[in-house]
């Protein structure tokens, strides 16, 4: 397995270079001059302003020149400066990535826990009321658009009931914790700010639930199908015959085996959620990578677009690798190296 991992790790930079090259070229072949995102309409007729902006942002250089300079800077951790925020893209990403990860990890946890529980219950009580309710819940989660569910839950739980706060990562009147990890849950604890920590947790509940609902839908359906398959296997019968209790059979024998295909889905869901948290972040004014990507695309913010693409590409590569490793850990029959597999 270690050989396999090393090989994948060596291939990763090459794959990333491909991602960077494609992203860089695509952003430079769009139908609009990036200057339109830097200069307002009025000054577009002013040659002095246009020339100054081109020089300032390096747009007066040829594409190959810009590409080589970009790669050189990237090796030093410099991803350029955002046309829109006017701050280094690496800084923007460093601030926003923890926000997205905090949201996505919370959504993943909620989605997985609820998804597995619902899937197991649905399989255990197949075709009964619990199964029907679980399937309906999963169906809504998998099919309802996040921008709709987001607004609905905000209206119900924030406006009508007043149980949970509205958009944002922390109460607007509170001061954000000093940056340590960028995860507000951790940073408020590090700062000893219990009120802030409570506020952060409260602000996480709605967006994480909305985003996690999608995962719940997918996971519960997958777990249910796998569980039904596994529960009909002979070794389940054997376990029962040996006197294992229903819960032990369900959790230890059936669920463990049913989790294998679910892990694949979870791996992809995680990467999908990182890049797909766009709508949730927009609805909940969550300053993460998703909303950053939307604003960058809308504003032709080329350095930011390439930066987000690199992060997205890296996320997919890493989660694919981790999923493969998890496969091997959960199911010893899966061998990852060619020598072991042959």
């Amino acid at each position: 397995m270690s050989t396999y991992i090393v090989r994948r790790l060596i291939a990763m930079p090459l794959l990333l270079l491909g991602v960077i090259t494609v992203a860089f070229l695509l952003t430079h072949f769009t139908a609009a001059d990036p200057l339109t995102s830097i200069i307002g309409e009025r000054q577009m007729n002013n040659p002095a302003v246009v020339e100054a902006a081109r020089a300032r942002w390096g747009l007066d250089r040829s594409l190959p020149e810009r590409y080589v300079i970009y790669l050189g800077n990237l090796l030093q951790g410099d991803m350029g400066t955002s046309f829109r925020t006017r701050q280094p893209v690496a800084h923007d990403l460093m601030v926003r990535l923890p926000a997205t990860l905090e949201l996505v990890i919370s959504a993943m946890l909620l989605g997985t826990i609820f998804g597995v529980v619902l899937g197991v219950l649905a399989a255990r009580f197949r075709d009964g009321p619990i199964d029907n309710i679980a399937r309906f819940f999963a169906l809504i989660g998998a099919s309802a658009p996040v921008f709709w569910t987001g607004l609905v839950v905000l209206f119900i739980f924030s406006v009508q009931l007043g149980w949970l706060p509205g958009p944002g990562r922390i109460d607007s009147r509170a001061v954000a914790p000093p940056f340590v990890t960028g995860f507000y849950t951790i940073d408020t604890l590090v700062a000893g700010d219990w009120a802030g920590f409570r506020s952060v947790l409260m602000h996480l509940i709605l967006p994480a639930s909305v985003l996690g609902w999608t995962v719940t839908g997918i996971v519960s359906r997958m777990v249910r199908a796998s569980m039904l398959d596994v529960l009909s296997q002979e070794y389940i019968l054997a376990a029962r015959a040996k006197g294992a209790g229903p819960l032990r059979v369900l959790i230890n024998h059936a669920l463990r085996n049913a989790m294998l295909p679910t892990l694949t889905i979870l791996g992809f869901s995680f990467a999908y959620l990182i890049t797909g948290a766009i709508l949730t972040e927009t609805i909940f004014s969550w300053p993460g990578i998703g909303s950053y990507a939307v604003a960058a695309a809308r504003g032709l913010d080329n350095p930011a677009i390439v930066g987000v693409t690199i992060i997205g590409g890296a996320a997919f590569l890493i989660t694919n690798l981790l999923t493969d490793i998890a496969y091997a850990l959960v199911d010893p029959r899966v061998k990852l190296s060619r020598q072991e597999g042959s």
Partner: peptide
């Protein structure tokens, strides 16, 4: 504090809930 809220509906909801 000017809080980033892009959507008009979300702005109205914040106002009604007292967050803004």
């Amino acid at each position: 504090v000017i809080d980033q809220v892009a959507d008009a509906v979300s702005q109205a909801q914040m106002l009604q809930s007292g967050s803004a």
